[in-house]
Design a protein around this nucleic acid. Structure first.
Lengths: 140, 140
DNA sequence: CTCTAGCTTAACATTAACGTCAAGGTTAAT
DNA sequence: ATTAACCTTGACGTTAATGTTAAGCTAGAG
């Protein structure tokens, strides 16, 4: 068994979270790394996996109001262009790129959410199996 | 044209937002309802549609850290049950229901995100048409 | 006309999720 | 043994997105 452990800075680099955020998650009892005698936090690969799951769930956070505003504005601007049926080529291509990146972003969020959903689908089917089994034994 | 207007409380009931939130969105320039002479806010059906879009985008917000924690805990508890391969029927069915509701919730968020995505897909294809058209005219 | 319910702005409060010091202990290389 | 580069725990600051309270107009029912 690989018993390698990591200190917080390394974990920060691996997960993309700040050290502050990682400690904060510990305050919230999302994670509970071991400690050295001098109370340095030591993270295992398991801890890191858990943190990665947290990050994935967090990243599927969709929109702050500021982002919603931008989204609606982009929408509106494009609608204006479309109804005017004219614009410079450069402008058009600009907007096309912006919309493409929006679509990509949304797609990524959808994927992450779906991954979480599938995880639960899996748990559900396994639980259902167990339930059936237990039910039969109870009858017996 | 239906010129019906609504006062803020009505809008609150229709959209499920608090009056405070609705006013706050106005501060952020997400909406700009008309005003009566005595500066009462008057919302049109269009305003309400816009607010509904905002709500939809907001609801696709996936998880706060508190929710993430619950999600991970549920996951863990189910894993424990599964690995122990035993539990009372009532307990099992409880967890099955909890997981089902998680799955449903995630499905709803995915749907809302997808709706937003499709909206942009539509804009993109219309923009691309226009771009092509403009490009041809430019060449001419 | 009056009263109540609803509207307004303004201002301060709160919660989540961190950022940013500060003061001091630890580790490891030189 | 020293020093730089880590780590620790506070504690206070910040931003977004509201909640709450207050003080004072307004609209509509009776």
């Amino acid at each position: 068994m690989s018993t390698k452990t990591y200190r917080i800075e390394e974990v920060s680099n691996i997960t993309g979270l700040t050290k502050r955020a990682i400690r904060y998650y510990e305050d919230l009892n999302l994670i509970s790394p071991q400690r050295t005698e001098s109370s340095y936090r030591l993270y295992t690969d398991e801890d890191i996996e858990k943190i990665k799951r947290i990050v994935s769930l967090k990243e599927s956070l969709a929109f702050s109001l500021a982002e919603i505003k931008q989204t609606l504005e982009l929408d509106q601007e494009v609608e204006n262009i479309l109804s005017a049926e004219m614009a410079e080529l450069a402008t058009l291509n600009n907007y096309i790129e912006m919309i493409k990146s929006q679509i990509k972003l949304i797609g990524e969020k959808v994927d992450k959410l779906k991954a979480t959903g599938e995880r639960f689908e899996d748990l559900l089917s396994r639980l259902s199996c167990l339930e059936e089994k237990v039910r039969k034994e109870d009858v017996r």
